[in-house]
């Protein structure tokens, strides 16, 4: 078991959510019922620029889809991964080459080598967390459906 706690720090997650603008989603599906589509759709509606990375598609969510991270025309703030854990080391190398800010691995995308490659390349790494859930937890509305956000605060802020 990898110790994932260091990749799930709430302050780091909040910093990434609040500073990111462009999010490349590796493995984004064009199937509206897949989890990756739910996340891409949500992040786009919440104002992030979503860049699909999927060699089998040309456009997803109305955005041009790129075959790989190496094909991206610019560095992105977050590389969000919806792929099998085995694919992570190569994706991490692509994220480092892209000079991306953060490697974000969705639920179950757990690969210690991939994490190390990204960290050595200077990236922030988040693992086994959903970017949609974390956004909804800290910026708002997840609590409207009775989910346990684990937040305790008396500060007036957030998305109503």
């Amino acid at each position: 078991m990898t110790d994932l706690g260091k990749y799930q720090d709430p302050l780091t997650i909040q910093r990434v959510l609040h500073t990111a603008n462009t999010v490349a989603i590796v493995g984004l599906s064009s199937n509206e019922l897949r989890a990756s589509y739910f996340v891409g759709y949500y992040l786009k509606r919440r104002g992030y620029r979503v860049i699909p990375v999927n060699p089998r598609e040309t456009r997803i969510l109305g955005e041009k889809s790129y075959p790989s991270l190496a094909d991206l025309p610019e560095p992105v703030d977050v590389v969000d991964v919806f792929r099998a854990p085995d694919a992570l080391p190569e994706i991490a190398r692509g994220a480092v080459a892209n000079r991306a800010g953060t490697l974000w691995c969705q639920f179950g995308v757990i690969n210690a080598e991939g994490n190390r490659i990204a960290e050595d390349g200077g990236l922030t790494v988040v693992v086994d967390r959903c970017m949609k859930v974390e956004h909804a937890r800290y910026v708002g509305r997840m609590h409207w459906l009775g989910f346990n956000t684990e937040r305790i605060t008396s500060v007036r802020s957030g998305l109503q």
Partner: peptide, 15 residues
């Protein structure tokens, strides 16, 4: 977007 995603929160919440 009624709140820009990159706006700073009122105060970050540590664990």
């Amino acid at each position: 977007t009624d709140t820009p995603p990159h706006s700073e929160p009122a105060r970050a919440e540590p664990a």
